[in-house]
């Protein structure tokens, strides 16, 4: 039996993530000011980056869905929005766990945190809309429009730490991080990207399958 292409990517992602997490936990050095708590960086930051990448895929799918009305584009919206929300929830939970020992609070309504929470709520809104609209064509166009609009907030969320005063620090770069930490961060980011590609691809197939069944219900077998 031949495996679908995404399984190779998913398997590679799983292995890389296990290795990258282990390296982040046990091999990477503790951070000078945060100590071991700094290791949360290696799961929190990849979640943020890949979450935004997957939302970008949803945006592209939504534009394509509006322009072409192809079922494949709509299935891409359905799958990438769901995976984006998954990573968004993970991002918020990890951020909260990171914030308590470092900032001293679980949460505060600073611009970055507020924008991230809005980002989660708006895409959950797209999912709820999809669940409520039964008509396939309406569901496709409505969720495409709302996805495009919800996407406005992604650049805002990314730039929020630069546009406004915030508790959250601005983005780190290779010049603000020790090389061994930066490399571990990238390893974990690539790993999560691969795992997320597997998520989107698998979820896409389920979405296509369901849509096909709606269009052409399976024949009932006569008794």
């Amino acid at each position: 039996m031949k495996l679908a292409w995404e399984h190779y990517i998913g398997l590679a992602g799983l292995v890389l993530m296990a290795a990258g997490n282990a390296i982040g936990l046990f091999w990477a050095p503790p951070e000078m000011m945060m100590g071991d708590v700094g290791r949360i960086l290696y799961v929190h930051v990849p979640a943020a980056w890949i979450c935004m990448v997957i939302y970008l895929v949803a945006f592209a799918g939504a534009v394509a869905s509006l322009a072409t009305a192809r079922p494949g584009a709509d299935a891409l919206v359905e799958s990438s929005v769901e995976v984006g929300v998954l990573l968004n929830v993970l991002l918020l939970v990890l951020g909260s766990i990171f914030a308590k020992p470092t900032w001293g609070v679980w949460w505060d309504w600073d611009p970055r945190l507020t924008a991230s929470a809005i980002m989660c709520l708006t895409f959950v809104g797209v999912m709820v809309l999809r669940a409520m609209v039964d008509d396939v064509e309406r569901r496709a166009s409505w969720s495409a429009v709302t996805t495009v609009l919800a996407f406005v907030n992604i650049p805002v969320t990314y730039m929020s730490v630069r546009w406004w005063r915030s508790l959250h620090q601005v983005q780190s770069s290779s010049s603000t991080m020790s090389a061994e930490m930066w490399n571990v961060l990238w390893l974990n980011t690539v790993a999560l990207l691969l795992v997320s590609i597997w998520f989107v691809a698998r979820r896409y197939r389920i979405a296509r399958d369901r849509a096909d069944q709606l269009r052409a219900p399976p024949l009932e077998v006569a008794p």
Binding site: N21, P30, D36, V43, L86, L94, K100, P101, W198, I206
Partner: peptide, 27 residues
């Protein structure tokens, strides 16, 4: 290091594997 630091670290990694693993199994 301050006591309890690793509790936050483990919580973060367990949440990550729990959420992603759970979703993967569902798929």
């Amino acid at each position: 290091v301050i006591e309890g630091q690793w509790a936050y670290v483990w919580a973060a990694y367990v949440v990550t594997w729990g959420l992603l693993g759970g979703y993967g199994l569902r798929l």
